[in-house]
Amino acid sequence: MLSVKLLDIPFDDARRRYLVFQPWRLPDRLRLASTTTTQEFEQHASSRFYVSDDQALLAKVVPDKFDKRRQPFNWFARDYLEKRWLLQTDAHKEFRSLRILRKAGLRTPTCHGWGLSLNPRNRNASLLLMEYLPTARPGGDYFESLDEAGKRRFLERFVGEVIQLARSGFVHRDLHYNNLLVTASDEIVWIDAHVRPLPAKASAQWHALAQTLTINKLRGETYRAYAEQYMHALWHSETG
């Protein structure tokens, strides 16, 4: 049974009302604020981030793609009808993807629900509420802090988890370090989860995996090539 909770959430000096689906351990009142940590997250993403007053929850907010005044037809069709009324917000898609990652055995933040605003005046229609991990570091910063041997070891762990996801039938759509956090105990946590099914045809599966490794997102051809070599060996040793 799908559970729903109506929350009035103050942030950005305004009170916004959301329908929150599949809420888990949410308070009746929730206040969100921007911090230096959330501002750092925003440097690597198009989303906005906020932290709850009790430091327990991280909120990811995605604004409408189209401007209501400049592109009214696109806004009405995509941002209002499709995303709000057909429940196709980024938060809902990411909530489902995080479940897929967790089912594959990868660590993700605990999800406390996904929400949407039906108010057309609220451009921030998409809301995802997750566990906040204040001591974890963005994956990109962690990677850059390592020496060359450490970077290769990290790439091996990273690729190993990509293969683990592929074994469950999925591939990540946007594979880069800042979709991860690394905890104080060096555990990888997947925080940005957009996945798609791996092709059913076996001959197409390796190509789909290899395409996820890019020079820019892995910070250089040296690391992309090493990741691909390690991925190839791992994938083909298990598939025969």
Rank of each mutant, 00 (worst) to 15 (best):
S34Y: 05
L118S: 05
D141Y: 08
H176P: 03
S168A: 06
T135Y: 00
G139Q: 03
R69V: 09
V182R: 02
E156D: 04
E161S: 07
L6G: 06
Y18S: 13
L19Q: 11
H236W: 09
S203K: 13
K93F: 01
K217V: 10
G140W: 11
A184E: 15
S97I: 03
R96H: 10
G105E: 09
L155A: 13
N216V: 09
E42G: 10
L26Y: 12
L175M: 03
T110D: 02
G115K: 00
T135I: 02
A77N: 05
I163M: 08
I100R: 09
R25S: 11
W24H: 15
T183I: 08
L81V: 01
V171K: 13
A184N: 12
R78F: 10
L19N: 12
Q71W: 12
L181Q: 08
R152M: 03
P27I: 14
I9D: 00
M130K: 01
L129S: 08
I9P: 00
Y18L: 15
V159A: 00
T36A: 15
R137K: 13
L129M: 06
K5Y: 03
Q22S: 13
H194C: 13
Q71P: 13
L180Y: 06
L6E: 14
S237Q: 13
K83S: 07
L165Q: 03
D64M: 07
F76N: 09
D64G: 04
S117Y: 07
K217Y: 11
V61E: 04
V189P: 10
L128F: 01
Y80I: 03
A227W: 05
R196D: 11
L106C: 08
R224D: 12
H176W: 06
E94M: 00
P134M: 04
L128C: 05
T36G: 15
L87C: 01
H92G: 09
D192E: 05
S3C: 05
Y226S: 04
S52K: 12
D174W: 07
V20D: 10
L7S: 06
E238W: 15
M231T: 11
T37M: 15
S46K: 15
L234E: 11
V62K: 02
T89V: 01
S126P: 05
H44G: 07
H92E: 06
G240D: 13
S203H: 13
E228S: 05
A45H: 11
I163S: 01
A59G: 03
L165I: 02
A125D: 05
L2D: 13
F76V: 11
N122R: 00
F41C: 05
R15Y: 12
V61P: 07
Y80Q: 07
S34A: 09
L165F: 02
G140C: 12
H44A: 04
L175E: 01
H112P: 09
E187S: 15
L101W: 01
R123T: 08
I191N: 10
P63Y: 00
L218C: 09
